[in-house]
Write a protein that binds this DNA or RNA. Structure first.
Length: 270
DNA sequence: ATACCGACCTGTCAGC
DNA sequence: TGCTGACAGGTCGGTA
């Protein structure tokens, strides 16, 4: 589900509501839980911890924690996979199906991790988490160009590779390539410096615009308050198969690249 | 080393 | 109405 703009929206919402609050107790579902750390490690790291701050790194939500048990803090890392949600809710509201974790807060609210497909991952750690790659919103043009210069993969696949840039997913890869007039199947190392410049600018612009719109809600994405985003109405390629290109009216094509549905304009993108 | 492809899960929707 | 198959915002590990 969530890519950089959605995770950013969720993390900001959580930060607003949770910063300074304390986790009193943690309930974990008994199914094969979507955990990277063990259930005991998670409970023991979270219970009694105060949330200093919640922020986004790549597609991960990072809770900076402070507690007597873990002096100097520790971090709770959440990856939402395709369908994960982090919801702040009043305890009396109905617990959604597929709730895998509930943290009862000192304020009386509950933080709930809900994930039908269970692709999401929870992890606690002591060392500081920096993510697998570079931040798309911070990277400069030179470093950006260097990342893609060596890769023979299709540029779409390279954009999805979290070890290069982290945070870009299927929607924003298609949208950035559309806005930069580049075909998704172009080998990354065949892009000219002018094209790399356009892609760098297009990617940052589309991510910023999506954050401003609260992310894209295709089916089940909601922020920490359960509110949908509305950037999907500004999509120009993703999900527009057969519809006229907003620029030249040519029908948008859908193909498979890197195993993912990929949308582009055969006229505008070269 | 690099790059494709199925597997991991559940839900939904189109087509028969 | 109900079944089947394809597909979905992500990542990982195996294989070529």
């Amino acid at each position: 589900m969530p890519e950089l703009p959605e995770v950013e929206t969720i993390a900001n919402g959580l930060n607003k509501r949770m910063a300074g609050d304390r986790i009193d107790s943690v309930w974990l579902g008994s199914k094969p839980e979507p955990l990277k750390s063990s259930a005991e490690e998670i409970s023991s790291a979270l219970e009694g911890a105060q949330v200093q701050r919640v922020r986004r790194v790549g597609k991960h939500i990072v809770f900076d924690l402070e507690s007597g048990k873990n002096p100097g803090g520790g971090q709770w890392i959440v990856h939402l996979g395709m369908t994960g949600q982090m919801l702040v809710a009043a305890p009396e509201t109905e617990l959604p199906k597929h709730t895998h974790l509930v943290a009862k807060m000192a304020s009386g609210r509950e933080l709930r991790f809900v994930d039908p497909r269970r692709f999401g991952r929870l992890e606690v750690r002591q060392s500081s988490f920096s993510g697998p790659g570079s931040e798309p919103l911070q990277i400069g043009l030179e470093e950006f160009s260097r990342l893609f210069h060596r890769s023979k993969a299709p540029i779409k696949a390279a954009l999805l590779n979290q070890k290069l840039l982290h945070g870009v997913g299927n929607i924003y890869a298609d949208e950035a390539l559309f806005r930069a007039h580049i075909r998704p199947r172009r080998r990354a190392n065949t892009l000219t410096s002018a094209e790399l410049r356009k892609l760098h600018a297009a990617l940052q612009k589309v991510l910023q615009a999506a954050i401003a719109a609260g992310g894209s809600s295709i089916s089940d994405y909601v922020d920490a308050d359960g509110e949908a985003g509305y950037f999907q109405i500004q999509h120009r390629a993703y999900g527009r198969e057969g519809k006229p290109c907003v620029k030249c009216k040519t029908p948008i094509k859908k193909i498979v690249v890197a195993g993912r549905g990929t949308h582009y304009c055969p006229e505008c993108q070269k």
